[in-house]
Design a protein around this nucleic acid. Structure first.
Lengths: 236, 236
DNA sequence: CGCATTTTTGATTCTTATCAAGACGAGTGG
DNA sequence: CCACTCGTCTTGATAAGAATCAAAAATGCG
């Protein structure tokens, strides 16, 4: 079990409040725009830095001693990031696309911070469930549902089923404990079966959400209609 | 991927403040003693109930729609359990041995509660790392180190290396996303190699902690000395 | 266009789940 | 005390799933 994902073509590692492309919007508080691939240096982060994602996508990850990388969570708009949400473990964050951040003052909204912490825990536990004794297809199906919840913009009325899959195949692999090849095979299997559709690998459409949910819950191709599991989060 | 663990020979499911064998110790606050196999009903738990484990062992678990069970965490003395630490997900707790609980007043020690929440998150993330793309032996090795940290009573001076493995093989399997057979095979492989020792399956001695740490970090039998990973928690 | 990255597909190997059955221990009842 | 049962643990044989190895398409960029 090896073959660490080759070191990401790393953008410069920056302390969280020196991210590139800073802007100063109306309110006076600094807004930040991150380039895809920008790494936020969160390990020895000083206390007060907490931000909220306005748009884009960030992954939280941990690099293991043997070079393997484990992505802990993938965060979309509305989710928070920073000191209090950071644990003792060495961890880092990486922008997966152009991402806008907004500073959060923990004094002004302590509730939001506590809520974010609970959300992180709930999602971490949901992810444990996704990883424990589940097949590759179950994991991928659950991941697609999770990400669609975070990144599909819901029109009023019916939910849009098309969304941008910001994490690349390698990111999904590192998140779900699989290999790039397996991720690709599963996605294409789902496409052949008509559960999802995509022309370019990054734009995914969910064609049969119910079937995907069955897959995520352990139902095989021949559907076993049962309650769905997991799926925590979504846009607040 | 199936074969749900057969339904645990379940003890009665009780609201957390009606656990059997209640006692009233000196302080006036109620102490509770749980029998092995006692299930604490945590799903729709009303707000104020929070307890601290004084002795024994409790596992937090989630039962999936298809009957499979995922153990989220295994808690030893000092760890807390209850409302604020409980997430939206349907979850339950199970005493794995005789367990004494002490009620905690969130008003009197809000810090402890916040700390417990952070510890839970840190451990959940560590567990994600354990489950993601790691071999059975790596998972078992990491689990043994974790549990020894929580359950080996440290004499002053050198740490004791013998501890009670409260979770049974089936519990370990449900925790680590493996099967009972694989858990048994790994433990016996470690024993044959002299990393650990046990006469009865429940009393384990760590004979070569450094080697176990290498295994947990991904080193094969032919050791690759590298930094250890994971292992969060321990007795406070 | 040519190069680098990402994605896809195929062939093979390895790990672990699955299926099956035996060993051990503790508790029960004759 | 022993035969019996039940639950747990162990061990073996086989098969399914995913990793690995290898290489070809697709995509994006300078």
């Amino acid at each position: 079990m090896l073959n660490p994902t080759p070191p990401v073509a790393a953008a410069p590692v920056l302390p969280i409040d020196q991210a590139p492309f800073s802007g100063a919007p109306a309110g006076g508080a600094a807004l930040r725009l991150l380039l895809p691939g920008t790494a936020l240096f969160l390990e020895g982060l000083h206390a007060a830095a907490t931000v909220r994602i306005l748009s884009g996508c960030v992954c939280l990850h941990q690099t293991l001693s043997d070079g393997r990388r484990q992505i802990l969570d993938i965060l979309g708009p509305g989710r928070m990031l920073g000191a209090a949400l950071l644990d003792t473990q060495p961890a880092g964050a990486l922008a997966l696309t152009f991402t806008r951040l907004e500073p959060v003052d923990p004094e002004r909204e302590p509730e939001a911070l506590a809520g974010a912490l609970r959300l992180r825990l709930a999602r971490a536990q949901a992810h444990v469930v996704r990883l424990g004794r589940r097949t590759a297809q179950e994991r991928i199906a659950a991941a697609l549902l999770d990400l669609s919840g975070q990144f599909a913009r819901r029109g009023r009325g019916a939910a849009h089923t098309r969304f941008t899959l910001y994490p690349k195949r390698a990111d999904l692999a590192d998140w779900l404990g699989l290999t790039v090849e397996t991720v690709s095979r599963c996605l294409n299997a789902f496409r052949r079966e008509g559960l999802i559709a995509f022309d370019r690998p990054e734009i995914v459409t969910i064609r049969d959400r119910a079937a995907l949910e069955r897959r995520a819950a352990g139902g095989s191709a021949a559907g076993n209609p049962s309650m769905l599991s997991g799926q925590t989060g979504g846009q607040p």
